[in-house]
Design a protein around this nucleic acid. Structure first.
Length: 288
DNA sequence: GACCCGTGGAA
DNA sequence: TTTCCAAGGGT
């Protein structure tokens, strides 16, 4: 296999975006919060919320001491509000199990609510400098093209970690840069649509380019339609609760947020099951 | 492994 | 207007 690490490192030194979590001394807690927010949400929308969040809760213990409702409210429109709840739970677990210090061990990180293969290794690598493969959607696309000669990656698989590990250099710091560089390249050059191959540091060694950019198909699962979905109903109801700023919302007012009664009931039930909504005296509110 | 979970910008 | 896509993870 050609050397991908060297061109990635050189390219990253010159082209990496200046992002908050890349500042010196950003800290493991900041890294953890940023990674939660970046799960399926674009960088541009995360940056302002992240600054706000860390100003209010500078440590895991600070967040753990706040009611979950505050976390859900400050999450605002970042999407997938369960992540706000999970981040609050993770902060509580960090306080209770790890003396308030974000763990460094991957297995300890994986044991926290809302942290999976990607986030656990991202924290261990970017916050602590350890050597692990970090694989996100950008990295999977870069590897699918440069190594496998495919136009799009397949569905996420356990083998993704081994594929990334195979291109990591031995040195810890270099490995961390290669992890970050693969993600960055996928984000700004080797993009899903209209990749900028003329600006790619891997062009000379890219298997997909060498093969003449074949369309190898796309076997990823398509995202379900959002308009009219249960997700949209949940979103509308939860937005109303966030906007109520702590005041419980009576059931009849919730009804006006989503007219379809059956779908509304289903949405409320699922929000309660997720712990995002509680009911007191017939009125809905965020978890206290 | 399949399916579920928000939101908004870009093409 | 519709579709695609975004530093994933839990069940």
């Amino acid at each position: 296999m050609p050397d991908l690490a060297s061109p990635l490192i050189a390219w990253y030194r010159e082209n990496a975006r200046d992002l908050p979590w890349r500042r010196d001394g950003f800290g493991a807690w900041g890294t953890l919060v940023s990674e939660f927010m970046l799960q399926q949400t674009p960088v541009s929308r995360v940056v302002p919320r992240l600054e706000e969040w860390l100003a209010r809760w500078p440590t895991p213990a600070d967040l753990a001491a706040a009611p979950p409702a505050d976390a859900v409210r400050l999450w605002a429109n970042l999407g997938y509000p369960r992540r706000a709840l999970w981040l609050h739970r993770a902060a509580t677990q960090i306080r209770d199990r790890h003396d308030g210090v974000v763990p460094r061990d991957v297995d300890a990180l994986l044991a926290l609510t809302g942290i999976g293969d990607y986030t656990a290794r991202a924290v261990a690598v970017f916050a602590y400098g350890d050597r692990h493969p970090v694989v996100d959607t950008n990295t999977r696309r870069v590897l699918a093209r440069a190594v496998d000669g495919r136009s799009q990656p397949g569905p996420p698989a356990k083998s993704d970690l081994a594929a990334m590990a195979a291109i990591l250099p031995a040195d810890d710091e270099d490995a961390a840069v290669v992890n970050a560089a693969a993600m960055e390249l996928g984000a700004i050059v080797c993009t899903a649509r209209a990749p900028r191959c003329e600006a790619c540091p891997l062009a000379a060694v890219c298997a997909w380019r060498a093969a003449g950019y074949p369309d190898t198909g796309d076997d990823r699962r398509k995202q379900a339609r959002y308009e009219g979905s249960d997700r949209q109903a949940r979103g509308a109801i939860l937005k109303a609760l966030r906007d109520a700023e702590g005041h419980p919302v009576p059931a009849d007012e919730v009804a006006s947020e989503w007219p379809d009664a059956a779908q509304r009931d289903r949405a409320v039930d699922s929000l309660i099951a997720d712990g995002l909504v509680e009911v007191t005296d017939g009125a809905l509110h965020l978890p206290r």
